[in-house]
Design a protein around this nucleic acid. Structure first.
Lengths: 369, 369
DNA sequence: TTGTATGCGTTATCAG
DNA sequence: CTGATAACGCATACAA
């Protein structure tokens, strides 16, 4: 472990003010009951305005006034103990919090939670089932109302821990018997090809096919992405002028593929299975003096961070992590039934919720005649 | 907002098993008291083995056995209500969860929390003081034991919300009167130059100086980074053969600077203020056919994700976000005093905890004679 | 229309 | 050594 190291003048410093602030007692229903001369239960009724018992507006108003004046906020711990609902849910991820990819997912779910006054408990498991179990156990002792499981790469997994009757969803992944929120990869594949064709391209190359990716335990979505691409090509009466397969979707594959494709001089456009491959294609293009998009167009998938560094800016099908996170949280909240002010109609009793992958139109695809 | 979209066959699906699992009542102290014939308080004493009262090993053992057998886990909600400590702390960040940079910080603090059986409540504020206040308020109603504030870019800020007597630390930033955990930028600047000098470089260029960065509200650390570089240069009796200033530390600055530097042909090494600038330098080098590191060496700062895509791999001073997160959480936990099994000695009553920035030695610096 | 009593699961105090 | 009993802050069924 890294060790902390000191610097600067040694200046004693209060970690926290133990003064009047700390003495500012947390104010409770009792306080406001005292102030109003009413009983605790009356105050509670007013503040939760329960439909059952009608309390005259006059007193209700007074209670609310005092509550506001005192700055009352209900103690969620106590309320949770009483009601059995914590108004918090858990998010367990393999490593999504920490990766280049998908931390937008976290933001999406945080946003949705905030809208409903929910808190989120986050745990990373690094794919160790021991840690998954531990996380779930810990969260249950905190009485979370539901649980979200997030994966960095969309694939099928088994859930080691016992969800045990808790409302649950999986984001960017597949677990038997649990509803998934997934990117709509098939449609994205379709859209990608349609876009290219609509811009006049008919001699298209494809980089990244690999049978290994068809195993659902490896990827639940890549097969659909490729199927979409293939189907759209077939619909357009086209077939690839060249293909370069590859399991490792890294820049090196792009380097290598671009070299081949540039040598053959037969493609006007290249579809790369992801941005990292496209990055390699770009690199090779710069080396060879091949001008994108004038000599060759590039269309890619993912729109990861890396894409923002590519010049010309790359046109790519965006993985909608932000929306997936938000939608997953909204579904969960609605399922929990806790005042989740859900914007639109949300889908239930469906085993997959597919979120569209928008085409981010930038500068790497030229129109040809 | 994106709308969810359906696909696949409509197959009714249980969101959760309402069967035996859900009926598996949460087991409490009472259950285990019943089974053991002892009282709830005795069981509690045993399970928390309080020093006050000695309970014979025989009964203690029996209690523990039953507890294990039943799979007892204390209800943190109830315990929290009683003790006033939730064994959870809050993490409030401007946008650190979601950026390319610093999500490692989150992992670090999650790791530390897990070691102490703490949970962490995360909120993003997007730099809106309204949201900061709301987050703090919400967290306080959950009785968090302490609070961590994280910033994406290390700078001085004011904390809008009322921390009110809660133990607090700020990670990668500065708030008046609050202890900071920061990267040791001055030393990193020193080390960077020393490294270059030790490899024989004496004609060094620097890209990225800007007076604007010296404002603590803009950056609390860049000044130190540059000061370290300058001091080390002076110590070595050197001055930069060329400098290209720039406020925007983006690839374009690197492009531009590299063009200048390559034209002059007077530097054997370039220090770029961050990786994004270095990325631009690389791009220009590839365009010009300049070979790194043989014709010119590049030394950079940050080691952000982008760095992993650069070929040859770049030598850079790593921003130790993971360690900063872990150390901050450990300090906070120790301050809270809650069973935080802290590995090493941690520093207190110090207004800054500086975490070393390691030199990640890769392939962009050549040794010259 | 409002107050009383009870319980959520723990921990803590204090008798026995 | 152990067990009532109270309290944490809130919600709710029921009584007044």
């Amino acid at each position: 472990m890294a060790t902390a190291c000191l610097a600067g003048p040694f200046r004693p410093l209060r970690w926290s003010q133990i003064g009047e602030d700390a003495l500012a007692k947390r104010i409770t229903l009792a306080d406001i009951a005292l102030r109003s001369g009413l009983s605790v239960s009356t105050v509670s009724m007013v503040l939760n305005d329960r439909p059952g018992s009608r309390i005259p507006e006059s007193t209700a108003l007074r209670v609310r006034d005092i509550a506001k004046e005192l700055g009352y906020a209900p103690d969620r711990t106590a309320r949770g103990l009483r009601t059995g609902r914590s108004e918090a849910f858990g998010f367990i991820s393999d490593e999504v919090t920490v990766t280049r990819y998908a931390s937008a997912m976290v933001r999406g779910l945080l946003d949705a939670a905030e809208d409903s006054n929910y808190s989120v408990l986050i745990a990373e498991t690094d794919n160790q089932s021991r840690r998954v179990e531990a996380a779930i156990r810990l969260m249950r002792t905190r009485r979370i109302d539901g649980i979200l499981v997030g994966l960095m790469r969309a694939r099928q997994i088994d859930l080691p821990g016992d969800i045990g009757g808790l409302p649950a969803l999986i984001v960017n992944g597949k677990v038997d018997g649990v509803v998934s929120v997934l990117p709509d990869e098939y449609r994205a594949g379709l859209d990608a090809v349609h876009y290219l064709v609509s811009r006049g391209h008919r001699r298209i190359a494809f980089v990244g096919r690999a049978p290994e990716h068809l195993d659902p335990r490896v990827s639940w979505t890549i097969g659909r992405r490729v199927a979409g691409i293939d189907d759209a090509m077939a619909d357009a009466g086209l077939s690839f002028v060249h293909e370069v397969g590859g399991v490792e979707w890294e820049p090196e594959l792009g380097d290598h593929a671009a070299a081949e494709i540039f040598d053959r001089r037969d493609a006007t456009a290249i579809i790369t299975a992801n941005d990292r491959i496209a990055f390699g294609v770009y690199r090779k293009a710069r080396e060879r003096g091949v001008e994108i998009p004038f000599e060759v167009s590039v269309l890619s998938f993912d729109d990861e961070q890396l894409a923002s560094y590519m010049r010309p800016q790359i046109t790519t099908m965006r993985l909608p992590y932000l929306e997936m996170g938000r939608i997953a949280a909204e579904c969960l909240l609605e399922r929990i039934g806790g005042g989740g002010k859900v914007a639109g109609r949300l889908v239930h009793e469906q085993d997959e919720i597919l979120v569209p992958m928008p085409l981010i139109e930038r500068d790497s695809v030229a129109t040809i005649s």
